[in-house]
Design a protein around this nucleic acid. Structure first.
Lengths: 186, 186
DNA sequence: GTGCCCATGTAACCTGTTACATGATTAG
DNA sequence: CTAATCATGTAACAGGTTACATGGGCAC
């Protein structure tokens, strides 16, 4: 734990919703941001401590009958301002994605064509599963969202991103597979 | 430095080419795999040490006149076998990409529309720059590759992947921007 | 003699996950 | 009584980058 990193801002963002404790932050991420953001308790609790130290939020222990006590965090004006600054700041650089499948393909000269083909088919299958997951999440959002539901709109934007990128990767699998299969026949 | 991780296999793969020293491995990655794999000296040298410890490669000091000595690594049969096993093994799970722009967009309820639009336009611009880079690399490969050049073929596959995914992301920017701009007019 | 490429290496640090410890309450 | 859910927290580890130390040779 050092300073202001993306995890800090992600948590600051979530604290603007109704999720105010470490446990419910984790739940929120797992339910809603899971396809483009993950986080573990090992990061959440130390970060919440840091956020309080910096005066970005305040803690109050909430006693609910029938449930264990929980620490509820409320953003301070300074916290809101810090979040807003970050949101406005354009991203510095595109994330450099490591891609294991491209690495394996690149060294494919040392494999048989059959192995490369089954590698690609396995990858394609995983992408298709992901695509189906996106589609069912999307349907669930559409079904239960009322009109003017801003949260739903933003969820759909992020899902649309995931679907388009996954679709492109599946297309690539198909054309690449075709090339290997064509070569095999010749 | 612990055990067999992706970095180990990446280096094992590169050692099958003419790059046999830590320095030239770094160069190779920066020149050829840069768009989907990066690595720093801080990983390369300890990993090479580990590879030798495991008996996957052997070191020999090569003295070239006019240049400093360098440690040349040569794969052993065990090293080749280890690499081949990894190459054949299908990837376990799709990489879970953290996406800062989706995170910022998701919390866009706390920004003005103008800010969101400029965020997206900035992102789109970066994607376009990346696309141009891919295209110029591709052209360079096509220009200098002779027929039956297997390396060139694999490079083009990985570039094709990058181009398709980047294209999909740009398309997403466009449709999302349109929605925000339409909303602004209404 | 100065700056650049070649070449090797490491220590400090950052970020994150996993596994564990702890304990209350409730439903069956 | 026991399993599940709610809730908080930390220590050990894994993986990676950055910055630094070191030094040879070459071209200007």
């Amino acid at each position: 734990m050092k300073g202001y990193n993306e995890t800090t801002y992600a948590i600051l963002g979530i604290l603007t919703t109704d999720c105010r404790s470490g446990y419910s932050i984790k739940q929120f991420i797992d339910r809603s941001l899971n396809h483009f953001w993950k986080i573990s308790y090992g990061q959440i609790y130390p970060t919440l401590k840091f956020i309080v130290q910096e005066g970005l939020a305040e803690v109050h222990t909430a006693t609910t009958s029938g449930k264990p006590d929980k620490n509820e965090y409320t953003l301070t004006p300074k916290g809101i301002e810090t979040l807003r600054k970050w949101l406005e700041h354009p991203i510095e650089q595109l994330p450099a994605e490591r891609n294991e499948i491209l690495l394996k393909l690149f060294f494919g000269r040392f494999q048989t064509r059959e192995t490369t083909i089954s590698l690609l088919e396995n990858y394609k299958q995983k992408l298709q599963t992901r695509m189906e997951t996106y589609q069912s999440i999307e349907q669930a959002i559409i079904d239960c969202a009322d009109e003017n539901d801003m949260d739903a709109m933003y969820w759909l934007f992020t899902l649309d991103y995931g679907k388009r990128v996954t679709r492109a990767a599946i297309d690539w699998c198909n054309v690449t597979l075709e090339k290997f299969i064509a070569e095999e026949e010749s």
